[in-house]
Nucleic acid binder design. Structure first.
Length: 118
DNA sequence: TATATGACCTGAC
DNA sequence: CGTCAGGCCATAT
C-alpha cells in the first residue's frame, strides 16, 4: 500500500478547470483521515512533478500551498489560465469550481489500486 | 522513546 | 458568515 503513489494517481484525474480538496484526495485514496499527509506529500514533493498540484486547495477554497510553488503567483496564474478566478485573499469559489467526483470514480480508483498493488 | 510540525478537516455553537 | 476544540498521522528532530 503506497499512499503517495495513490495521491499521485488521483491528482492526475482532476479535470482541467476544477479543484479538489486535500480531504477529498485522501478519501479517494482510501485513507479518509490522511488529508494532512496529502499536503505533506505535495510540499515535500514526494510525488512525480507532473501532477496538477495547483488544483489542490483546502476545504475553504484557500490556496494553502502558495508558498511551495516556484514563484508566489505560480499557482494563481495556473488556475486562472484554466478559468478559475482567484480572489485577492488567495481563495477560489469551491461552490462553482469543485471537482464533483462520482461514486464510480471512487470505485474505479479502488480497483486500480488493487490491480496495480498500490 | 518522546515531542514537535504541518499545502488538513469536521462539528458544535 | 466566524471561532474554537479536538481529532488526525507520517516525518522530522
Amino acid at each position: 500500500m503506497d499512499f503517495y503513489k495513490r495521491v499521485e494517481y488521483v491528482c492526475k484525474q482532476i479535470p482541467r478547470g476544477r479543484a479538489a480538496t486535500y480531504g477529498q484526495i485522501a478519501l479517494l485514496c482510501g485513507m479518509p483521515s490522511h488529508s494532512r499527509q496529502v499536503g505533506y506529500a505535495l510540499n515535500k514533493k514526494l510525488t512525480s512533478p507532473d501532477i496538477p498540484a495547483h488544483r489542490i486547495v483546502n476545504h475553504k477554497g484557500y490556496l494553502s500551498g502558495l508558498a511551495s510553488f516556484t514563484y508566489p503567483d505560480t499557482q494563481e496564474s495556473l488556475l486562472e489560465k484554466e478559468g478559475i478566478p482567484v480572489t485577492p485573499e488567495h481563495t477560489i469559489d469551491l461552490k462553482k469550481y469543485a471537482w464533483h467526483h462520482t461514486l464510480d470514480d471512487a470505485i474505479r480508483f479502488r480497483s486500480y489500486f488493487t490491480t496495480h498493488n498500490l
